[in-house]
Each structure stands twice: as C-alpha cells, then as structure tokens.
Computed example of a mutant assay.
Amino acid sequence: MNAYRRLIFAALMLTAVVVVFGAYVRLADAGLGCPDWPGCYGKITPHHAAEDILGAHAADPHGPVSLPKAWKEMVHRYLAASLGLMIIGIAVLAWRHRSHKGAAPWVATLLVGVVIFQGLLGKWTVTLLLKPAIVTGHLLGGLTTLALLTWLAARVAGARREVVPPRLLWAARAGLLVLAVQVALGGWTSTNYAALACTDFPTCHGSLWPVADYANAFHVVRELGMTADGELLSLSALTAIHWSHRLGALVAGGVLLMLGWALARRVPTAGAGVALIAAVLMQICLGVANVALSLPLPLAAMHNAGAAVLVGLMVWINFRLQARGIARPAPAGLGRLLPLSPRSQRRA
C-alpha cells in the first residue's frame, strides 16, 4: 500500500502541473504549436520536426506554429502521457490491494476512463482546431482528474471524518456544485478568448448590465470565434460570456465564503474553513487583477491554478464531512448555515 499511496500523491501533484501548464499553453496561443497529434509533424519531438516547423513559421510568421510554441505544446503532451501511465499504475495497484480499506479500485478504474477520454479530447482539441466546446471539455476533464485523485488521496491518507449537522454537509455539497458551474464558465471565457471583453471593473463598458448577446455566446457547437451560422462572433457575444463569468464569481464567491465561515466557526473544521476563505479571496483578487492589468500571462495562469486549488480543497472538505442524526434547527437566513455558538456546536 505504500507504493499505492506514494503514486497517488505523485499523480495528484503532476495533475496540478498538467492543468496549470495546459492553461499556460492555451493562453500563450500555443495550442496549435504542433498541428497534428500525437507527434509534431509526425515526429516525436519538435527538434526532429524543426524543418517543418520553421517552414510553417516562415510562411505565416504570425500564425500558431513556431518552434517555441511547438515545444510548449509537446511538453504538455509529454506530461499528460506520463500522468496517464501513472494513473494506469494506480488502477493496477488498487485492484491488487482491493481488500484494503483505502484502495477504492472502482474509483481508480473510473479515473482511467476519465484519462482515456481526456486524451481523446486533447487529440480533438488539435485536430478540430480549438473548438471552444472541446477545449472547455478538456479543461474540465483535467479538473475532474484532479478531483478524483484528491478523493483517492484523502481516502488512502485516512483523512479524519468530522461529524457535522446535515445542513452543513449539504452546504458543502452545494458549494462544490456551484464551484463546478463557475469553473465551466471560466473555461468557456478562456477558450473563447473573452477575458478582455470587459476592460473596466466592477462595471462592463461602463454599465452594470451591458449589451450582450447570450444566444450566440452560449451556442456550444460552433467554431472558435464564429457563430453557429458562420458569422464572426460579435463583441456583445464575448461580453455575454465575460459578464456571465463575473456574475457566476459573485454567486460562487458568496456561497464559498459563507461555507468557509461556517467551517471556521467549528473547532474541528476551522483549518479547512480558513483555507477555503483564503483561497476564495485570492482567486477573486487574481480575477480583478487580470482585468485591471489586461490579462498578463503569469496572472492568467495563476487564476487557473487558483481554480485547481479550490476544486481540490472543496473535494477534500466534502470527503471529510459526514452527518449523523438531526441537528437542532437553526434560525432562518444565514443562521441556517452558520452555527450560533460553541454550545450549539457541541450539541450538533
């Protein structure tokens, strides 16, 4: 089991690297640095394909192909392939130790399926020329991999389960769901290059309800930068995408901050609550900074890293919480989520 445990934690760390580096590749406009898959112009490295890459770059100096972009794209593929092999190893060890309480072989098997589908999404990302639905799915697949590995890590580490009132448990479940929706909105914003559709804050184009084309913005089956009818995607459609992400951040941030405060009020979960509050506030600051500073690449990558941290943290929190019995009813409003006093906490 020691090898199984070490492999899970190593894969979890590598997944975080792959997710963040994948965001960096996309933000650096290197997603088509190698226009074929799985190699680069049929070669195993950009070094071996240098002649083809330099020829493509000479033909279109402002295009998506260049030697630096090719290396970025291929390094991401090498890391992802290494992660896939590690996850297969995790599944093999999980079944070998299936009698052990922390093995969870079916979750490990599900993880293999997710990674295989993630590999196909990576292929389609290139061969279908960065279609927003495919690229967003690829991002969500990476975060799903992170979430499953976090769950496995919590299980194999024997993370302490805390008994909490049912309302707090369901608040944590709802928080994870709200976060998933917000991550999807963030991915849609990034893959449609709508992060700078609004350059002012907190308003957008000087308004709290800007002119926006939501119909074309959220039409899933279309080409990058185009409507479903083949027209260029308008600024109002990009504004709709960006503004939806901001409104989602307002909702998700509020829900997660309330959850963090509720956890921080209880001694056994205080550390998790403080960590959640800090992660949410940091993510909000990064989002605002990206708008104010016109999306510098390091900050944009850090914003993606912040989303990964929140996903991992929320999965860990949900793993730790369990409800038993019925807690004393709380007052309406915020009191339904927040414990009232240490005495009421002990009763719960």
Rank of each mutant, 00 (worst) to 15 (best):
328 R>I: 14
32 L>V: 08
190 S>M: 01
56 A>I: 01
13 M>K: 07
164 V>Q: 09
188 W>R: 04
9 F>M: 07
187 G>N: 03
314 M>F: 03
74 M>C: 10
172 A>E: 01
128 L>M: 15
34 C>A: 09
163 V>T: 12
24 Y>H: 10
341 S>G: 07
191 T>M: 03
282 M>L: 13
92 V>F: 06
253 G>I: 00
230 G>L: 04
124 W>E: 13
223 E>V: 12
95 W>I: 07
183 V>C: 00
141 G>P: 09
14 L>P: 05
82 S>Q: 02
202 P>R: 04
266 R>T: 05
267 V>F: 11
14 L>F: 08
182 Q>W: 01
169 L>T: 08
277 I>V: 11
134 I>L: 13
221 V>F: 15
288 V>H: 00
258 M>R: 05
261 W>E: 11
193 Y>P: 00
268 P>W: 13
62 H>A: 15
115 V>N: 04
325 G>T: 09
21 F>H: 03
103 A>P: 07
178 V>Q: 03
63 G>Q: 15
82 S>T: 13
70 A>Q: 03
92 V>K: 01
184 A>H: 03
41 Y>K: 10
130 L>C: 03
255 V>Y: 08
328 R>K: 10
218 F>P: 06
219 H>T: 14
238 L>M: 12
38 P>E: 07
156 V>E: 14
84 G>N: 08
23 A>Y: 01
70 A>V: 02
150 T>H: 02
334 L>V: 11
82 S>G: 15
283 Q>W: 00
284 I>N: 00
14 L>A: 07
281 L>R: 01
348 A>S: 12
64 P>Q: 15
203 T>Q: 12
325 G>Q: 10
333 G>E: 10
46 P>V: 02
139 L>N: 03
333 G>R: 08
152 L>N: 10
234 S>Y: 04
235 L>V: 09
296 P>Q: 02
113 G>M: 11
33 G>W: 01
101 K>L: 11
71 W>R: 02
192 N>A: 05
190 S>F: 00
310 L>M: 10
109 T>E: 07
268 P>H: 13
161 R>E: 14
201 F>K: 01
145 T>M: 12
128 L>N: 13
215 A>Y: 09
103 A>M: 09
136 T>K: 04
12 L>N: 02
134 I>F: 13
224 L>S: 04
263 L>P: 04
166 P>R: 15
12 L>V: 06
67 L>Y: 11
130 L>Q: 05
